[in-house]
Each structure stands twice: as structure tokens, then as C-alpha cells.
């Protein structure tokens, strides 16, 4: 048991070096900043609901853009894809793009877009 604990301590030190030395993850301040941006964007999204008429044709594009920005903020910062290996990004993005492509095509065959 004691040997195991020693090993854990070693592991901790090791991990501590690699996590903060090599990876350079953002600090908590950055996270709070990202969360603020997300909050503001969400507020803007909700605001469109009250100004639907004024926005007219801009409504849908602006909502989609805000959605995409929020999506990428969470993925890049909170999920660390910005700082992690490219391989993770590729695995995730291939699923994401495949989903978007295939389902958009399927919806298009239903003449969904007009």
C-alpha cells in the first residue's frame, strides 16, 4: 500500500510538470473570460427573440453565427482542443463534419431548404 502511495506522489509530480510545463493550459482567469463571452452571446441570442421583426432576414444567419461561435469557444477552450493534440481535433471534427454533411444532404433531399 505504501509503495502505491509513493508511486502516486511521483506520478503527481510528473503530471504536474507535464501539465503545466509542456501543455501550457490557460488559467482560471481565461476560463472565466470565455464564460463571460459565452454569457454575452447567449444574452444576444435571447435578445433576438424580442426583436424578431426588426431583424427580418438577418435573424437566422445571426443566430447560426452566434451558435457556431459559442460551439467553437467551448470546444477550443473548455475542451482544450486548442492546446491538445491535433489528432483529437481530427477525430472529433471528422465526426462533426460527417454529421453536418450527411444530414444536410438528407434534409436537402426532403426539399427542406426551400
Amino acid at each position: 500500500m505504501s509503495e502505491q502511495t509513493t508511486a502516486q506522489v511521483e506520478h503527481e509530480e510528473y503530471e504536474a510538470q507535464t501539465e503545466h510545463g509542456a501543455h501550457d493550459h490557460p488559467g482560471e482567469r481565461t476560463y472565466v473570460g470565455i464564460a463571460l463571452i459565452l454569457a454575452v452571446l447567449t444574452a444576444a441570442e435571447v435578445a433576438t427573440y424580442y426583436f424578431e421583426d426588426q431583424l427580418g432576414g438577418l435573424l437566422v444567419p445571426s443566430l447560426i453565427i452566434m451558435m457556431i461561435v459559442k460551439f467553437f469557444l467551448v470546444v477550443a477552450w473548455f475542451m482544450h482542443l486548442r492546446f491538445d493534440s491535433n489528432l483529437f481535433t481530427r477525430m472529433f471534427v471528422s465526426g462533426l463534419l460527417l454529421a453536418v454533411g450527411v444530414y444536410l444532404a438528407a434534409l436537402a433531399t426532403f426539399r427542406f431548404f426551400g
Binding site: L87, F88, M91, F92, V93, S94, G95, L96, L98, A99, V100, V102, Y103, A106, L107, F110, F112
Partner: peptide
């Protein structure tokens, strides 16, 4: 890596449900 693969797979799961709803 396994978790990211799984999440990539989940994209198609939710994509299907969202598309069904939109349709």
C-alpha cells in the same frame, strides 16, 4: 483518444435526432 472518438460518434447520433426534429 477513446473519449474523443466516442464524441465524434455522438455527433451523428444527435445529428440524426436534430434533423428528424427539424424535418
Amino acid at each position: 483518444l477513446a473519449m474523443w472518438l466516442f464524441l465524434g460518434s455522438e455527433c451523428l447520433l444527435f445529428g440524426g435526432l436534430i434533423s428528424t426534429f427539424l424535418l
